[in-house]
């Protein structure tokens, strides 16, 4: 068990390291083919392209005058010290920016997961109880539909038609929870609900099949035979047991949810990590691109890791190999 966790951890670290390699060398090998480098773009935008001394100075700050492997090692040591550098364009420290933005993306992902579960479990139970009658068919259509209909399109439809019919539009000026809780919830609720819609379809299917299996068990028949009310049988005996495997599967959708946050941040103009990454790509802002990718990699790999480990804790049948 201990060895299994250690091995998963090592793989996780290797994956994160792979991401930093791809992004770091991708940036610094591809960009110079077409432009000088990010510094020339940054300085060019500020109108001082002829100021050779300035360019050289900024290059030295970023170690861009040294060979690539040296640059990489020096970036890694900076990161290990907790220094993510400063944006090439506005000079703001990347770390402070990420501290403000990371909670927004995390909240989006986690509340999305919660909404997926809140939708999926009752739907799955109802579908199983009404097997092969119309509620079952309706929910099966929902399950198939939600995996085909892109969540970001639903968000666009809601915004479009809400503004036509009710003249309602989502607020574009963001408020943090500690500043204005009610406004914050108003802004975050819709995107968080919508982001959970895509994974909810798969969960409905799993919950339904689990319930069908449990409802056929002997102990459920016993419970019914001793005269318990149907609601008690379902809630206390069936759902409790049917839900266990579903809980283990729920975590699987977390990495996808986190990776999907940029779409919803873009639509609802939320100051999260995704929008930060997209904006930095427009300017080829090396430090920001590298750092956001690193954080996303840690988040997604971490989510995978937690799922794997909790699997092995919940279900001892999983072999640690």
């Amino acid at each position: 068990m201990g060895r299994y966790i250690i091995r998963r951890l090592v793989y996780g670290v290797i994956t994160i390291w792979l991401v930093t390699l791809i992004v770091f060398f991708g940036l610094r090998l591809i960009v110079p083919i077409f432009y000088g480098d990010a510094i020339e773009i940054a300085v060019g935008l500020s109108g001082a392209i002829d100021d050779k001394a300035l360019i050289e100075r900024r290059r030295a700050e970023l170690d861009l005058d040294k060979p690539l492997p040296v640059q990489y090692v020096s970036w890694l040591t900076d990161v290990a010290r907790g220094d993510l550098g400063r944006s090439l364009f506005n000079g703001r420290p990347v770390l402070t920016e990420i501290k403000n933005r990371l909670p927004v993306s995390l909240e989006l992902g986690l509340v999305g997961l919660l909404s997926a579960v809140i939708i999926a479990i009752p739907f799955g139970v109802v579908a199983a109880l009404a097997q092969d009658r119309w509620p079952d068919y309706a929910l099966r259509v929902y399950a198939v539909g939600s995996s085909s209909v892109p969540g970001f399109w639903l968000a666009i439809l809601i915004i479009t038609f809400a503004s036509i019919w009710w003249r309602w539009a989502p607020s574009i000026d963001f408020a943090y929870f500690h500043d204005d809780p009610i406004k914050h919830i108003k802004i975050m609720l819709l995107p968080a609900l919508l982001i959970g819609l895509t994974p909810s379809g798969g969960l409905v299917r799993i919950m339904r099949s689990q319930m069908l299996e449990v409802l056929r068990q002997d102990y459920v028949r016993t419970a019914r035979a001793k005269g318990l009310a149907e609601s008690v049988v379902v809630m206390r005996h069936a759902v409790r047991n049917g839900i266990i495997p579903v809980i283990t599967i729920i975590g699987l959708s977390l990495p996808g949810l986190i990776a999907g946050t940029p779409l919803f941040e873009r639509i609802f103009v939320l100051p999260g990590m995704g929008n930060y990454l997209i904006a930095s790509l427009g300017d080829l802002d090396y430090p920001v691109i590298q750092s956001t990718n690193l954080i996303f990699a840690i988040l997604i790999v971490g989510a995978n890791l937690i799922v794997d480990i909790s699997y092995s804790l919940i279900d001892p049948r999983i072999r640690y190999s």
């Binding site: 994956t15 791809i22 992004v23 990495p255 990776a259 940029p262 996303f296 990699a297 997604i300 995978n304």
Partner: peptide
């Protein structure tokens, strides 16, 4: 490789 964050890497 499998564990790479797909969409983020693609965007970048």
């Amino acid at each position: 490789w499998i564990a790479l964050p797909d969409l983020i890497i693609l965007i970048t």
